[in-house]
């Protein structure tokens, strides 16, 4: 029993270490004074100021636009690539897969700098387009890595059966193959979107004047010191991620339940 409480106690302390800074951060976002040491009463003024801050709003806009476009484009290119890679012979396949792993394993800063060298070399002005291209590039490998296992699990006979029963290849693909690989595609898309929103290092080297994502804005504000608006922003971001995760978890457990029901009915 003592041992059990020791274990619990240790985990409790570790969670306190992990969460205390986040909680303190959120707590002081409601503080009416700028000071971090003292509490001067509850206020929402930092939230109001945050929503009036043009810089924060435009960078939120850029983060979302780049996140959506880059994850969708990366999902299309990556899913197609996964099909092609699956059909390749051993040598080209290992070559392409090693090149796919390179940006995943490479330190972010090296990836970011190599993109920057490329854009300057081909005289593309650093800005929205370069930011988008670099995000697509670092997202594709994650899509491939989540779609490829699904394609490998595909039962070829199903596709051929559909063709034998008179389906055109396009219909067979849409009705048989696509539903099978969809979970992998969705995972890849969500992963790509999250990584794009979260990225700082690669964006930092590939953005030009006027265009900045949320991460870049937070960095430039944090470098100048404490700013309660960042507290408000991070509290909001943490709460939205929390809600999103809860929703995804609920959806997944509901799916699982209905599937279990279905399989029971079949049995």
């Amino acid at each position: 029993m003592v041992k059990y409480f020791l274990k619990r106690g240790y985990l409790f302390l570790l969670y306190a270490f992990l969460y205390a800074p986040i909680i303190v951060l959120a707590f002081y976002s409601f503080n009416s004074s700028r000071s971090r040491g003292t509490w001067d009463g509850f206020s929402l003024k930092w939230y109001i100021q945050m929503f009036q801050d043009r810089q924060i709003l435009t960078s939120l806009y850029y983060s979302l636009v780049i996140g959506i476009i880059s994850s969708v484009v990366a999902t299309i290119i990556g899913t197609m690539a996964a099909f092609g890679i699956n059909n390749m012979k051993t040598l080209p396949r290992t070559t392409v897969m090693n090149l796919t792993y390179l940006p995943v394993l490479n330190p972010d800063i090296v990836t970011g700098i190599s993109f920057m060298l490329l854009f300057i070399f081909i005289r593309l002005k650093l800005g929205f387009i370069t930011l988008l291209l670099s995000h697509i590039t670092f997202n594709i490998p994650y899509v491939i890595l989540s779609v490829l296992p699904r394609i490998k699990q595909l039962d070829k006979n199903m596709y051929e059966a559909a063709l034998d029963l008179g389906a055109t290849p396009a219909v067979a693909f849409r009705k048989v193959v696509l539903p099978e690989i969809m979970p992998g595609v969705i995972t890849g898309l969500l992963l790509a979107f999250t990584l794009s929103l979260d990225d700082f290092v690669i964006s930092f080297f590939n953005t030009g004047s006027g265009v900045s994502t949320l991460s870049i804005t937070i960095y430039s504000m944090a470098r100048r010191g404490i700013n309660p608006k960042i507290n408000a922003l991070s509290t909001l971001m943490f709460v939205s991620i929390l809600t999103l995760l809860v929703i995804i978890n609920l959806m997944m457990s509901r799916q699982k339940n209905s599937k279990e029901k279905e399989s029971k009915e079949v049995l």
Binding site: P21, F200, I218, A222, S234, M237
Partner: peptide, 12 residues
Amino acid sequence: MNFLLRTYAWLT
């Protein structure tokens, strides 16, 4: 949570 924000939390 964005790692910039986690780092910033310690700043405060």
